[in-house]
Simulated scan of single mutants.
Amino acid sequence: MKNNSSKTAWVTGGSSGIGLELTKRLIKDKYQVCIFAHAGIEQAVTELQKLSPAVCGFELDVQNESTMEAKFAEAAATFGAPDLLINSAGISIAKNFDEMSSQEFERQININLVGSRNVAHAALPHLQQAVQQGKRPKIVFIASAAGLVGCYGYTGYCASKFGVIGLAEVLRMELRSKKIDVAVVCPPEVDTPLVTEERKTGSPVTAALKQLGGGTMPVDKACKEIYEGIFSNDFMVIIGAQLRILTKLSRVLPDLYRSQIDKKLDKIIQKFSL
């Protein structure tokens, strides 16, 4: 199955949501793709192989690096070293801090942040092999608007995604001399199964505040912009004009930004009598 003349991509979280949509776009661009996820692999691979036979899938838990190393070795034996690694695996638990258990908080840190570390570390030997083959491979972390600015009701998620951006920033510097590129993508809320599940328990305050970052983007629209950003030279890819404006305001005029958020928050809390 290995075709050394083709480009190869590995996508974690590739069985649903952003990961699945990006995989479809990669296939359209003639990539061989290996997807990795903790569930839904068989169904996703069946769907994707209707688009191309050059797709394979592996079940894994990003919290378990030793298992990941074995799965990545299988993937490399199937399609070769990756030109592109996209880490889209992640979870969100939308609860206020006082309602969230330590286990729920730690689970988000372990999957979103530690999992990102594990993916990059387990893939590194294969990325270095790609460099030896004359390629310039790239690691892309899917972070979030919640890694750029804090959001009510997302203590665990924000903490993990702020960490992912910090991890990517350092890896960008450390891997530069090894000829491995790094990028981090920060979308606003995207209409995926993860978000659908989250809305069942999320706070109305959170939902109202999200509108400041551009609201919820359809997955097709978001992934079109994400995909273009992945193949740009930008390290940080911020999705959506409204989120880019909000992020710039929070950095250039942080006190003004926080005062505006506080005013909005006070009105929302009063509205819902919280």
Rank of each mutant, 00 (worst) to 15 (best):
Y257A: 03
S16Y: 00
G80D: 15
E106T: 11
N87L: 03
S160W: 01
N4L: 07
L175D: 05
F58P: 06
E106R: 15
K2L: 12
Q133H: 06
C34K: 10
V184T: 13
S102D: 10
L194E: 12
K138I: 01
I142E: 13
S5L: 07
F272C: 00
D191Y: 01
K30P: 11
M100N: 03
A75G: 06
E174N: 06
V237K: 06
P82S: 02
W10H: 00
S52E: 07
Q108F: 07
A130M: 05
L85P: 06
K248Y: 09
L20Q: 01
S5W: 09
C158M: 04
V11D: 08
L22P: 12
A183D: 04
W10S: 00
K200R: 09
I239G: 00
A73R: 11
S203D: 10
A168D: 12
G115L: 07
A123N: 04
M173W: 10
A222V: 01
I239Y: 01
V237D: 12
E65H: 07
Y31S: 12
P53I: 10
A143L: 02
E189L: 11
L246P: 03
M1R: 09
S232Y: 05
T46V: 13
A54N: 14
P188H: 04
A159L: 01
I86P: 12
I35N: 10
H126M: 12
V119L: 04
M217V: 04
E42R: 10
L127V: 12
K248F: 08
G166R: 04
L51E: 10
I35W: 09
S203G: 03
R258A: 09
V164W: 00
A168K: 06
A54C: 00
R258W: 10
D220N: 14
P125H: 08
F105D: 08
I27G: 11
W10P: 00
E21C: 05
V164Y: 03
I93E: 08
L113G: 08
A75D: 09
V252I: 14
K210Q: 14
E104M: 01
K224H: 11
G214R: 02
V205N: 05
G153V: 10
N233E: 15
F79L: 04
S6K: 14
N64T: 07
V195A: 09
K50R: 15
C223D: 05
L209R: 06
E189M: 11
I142Q: 14
V62K: 11
K221F: 05
I180H: 08
G213M: 15
Q43D: 14
V55H: 05
P187Q: 13
G57A: 07
K7G: 02
E74I: 03
A159R: 02
F235V: 13
G156K: 12
H38A: 03
V55Q: 01
I27P: 15
V33I: 03
L243R: 08
S15T: 13
P254K: 02
K50H: 14
P204K: 13
A207H: 09
I139F: 13
